[in-house]
Design a protein around this nucleic acid. Structure first.
Ligand SMILES: [Zn+2]
Ligand SMILES: [Zn+2]
Ligand SMILES: [Zn+2]
Ligand SMILES: [Zn+2]
Lengths: 131, 131
DNA sequence: ATGCCATACGTTATATCATAACACAATCCA
DNA sequence: TGGATTGTGTTATGATATAACGTATGGCAT
């Protein structure tokens, strides 16, 4: 919980809005909802998101240009790899990790002298309720 | 090779340009290079790319909004899951697949009644030469 | 052959996502 | 106390992607 304490005003606004949301939001979604709190420009959102991603409170969903609050804060030191299942009908996002997948990918990288910095793993499909 | 035969003119132009490239290209990169062949609008590129992705001749790299020709055409019926390692310095993209990762993700989905339609797995980092 | 359907094409306009560049303020700490 | 770092506010611009419209083509059933 330490990290939340250190957030600046804009970072807190963005993080709280994203945490309260029931699904992913785009940067412009966030901007629209934070105008009444005084935010006016996309950069204010993007800069906050950038910082929030650095401290693993927020993840970017590459396949849909949007962002979610982390579902398991403070566990990323252990997990390293984070995966998402994204329902294309209802928008629900499930965050999970898998040690076997992670070590398998680590092996692939090691064998080829590839130095990973960030991995994104996103499964699009239909969730239980929508399938 | 059957698939290449069936391509329309625009689809062939895009596919050949992408195959000849030594790395990923954005839709607008492609448009710039295909103007002399008569292409004029982004939609012409995007529509060709859409079709090429459907037949697995081209992959979209979600984490960088760009596209690559498939490195192992006609194997995707077997592999299903395709992964990419992307060098952030030199831009080299390595396409690979891994049965263990694939089955592990399939298990995750099965257990949760999640029906996958498309999975993207992209490892950013530094390749052997750039590390 | 005619009518119908599915697919591709061409074009203009617009929507959506993201960053450059600059000036200023707050904070940390040598 | 002064330099470095980080965050902020603002304007402008760049980059990526799709909507909406009309047309053309080819397959194929009547
Ligand atoms: Zn997380
Ligand atoms: Zn759903
Ligand atoms: Zn491929
Ligand atoms: Zn490299």
């Amino acid at each position: 919980m330490a990290q939340e304490q250190n957030l600046t005003k804009n970072q807190s606004l963005v993080f709280e809005k994203l945490s309260a949301a029931d699904g992913p939001m785009s940067a412009y979604d966030l901007l629209d909802e934070l105008r009444e709190q005084g935010l006016k420009a996309p950069l204010q959102i993007y800069r906050a998101l950038e910082k929030l991603q650095e401290v693993d409170l927020v993840h970017r969903l590459e396949s849909m240009n949007s962002f979610v609050a982390c579902a398991q804060p403070h566990c990323h030191a252990k997990t390293g790899l984070v995966a998402f299942a994204i329902c294309e009908k209802c928008g629900t996002v499930s965050e999970f990790s898998d040690d076997v997948v992670q070590s398998r990918l680590a092996d692939w990288a090691t064998e080829r002298n590839f130095t990973p910095t960030k991995t994104s793993l996103e499964i699009r499909g239909l969730c239980q309720g929508c399938g």
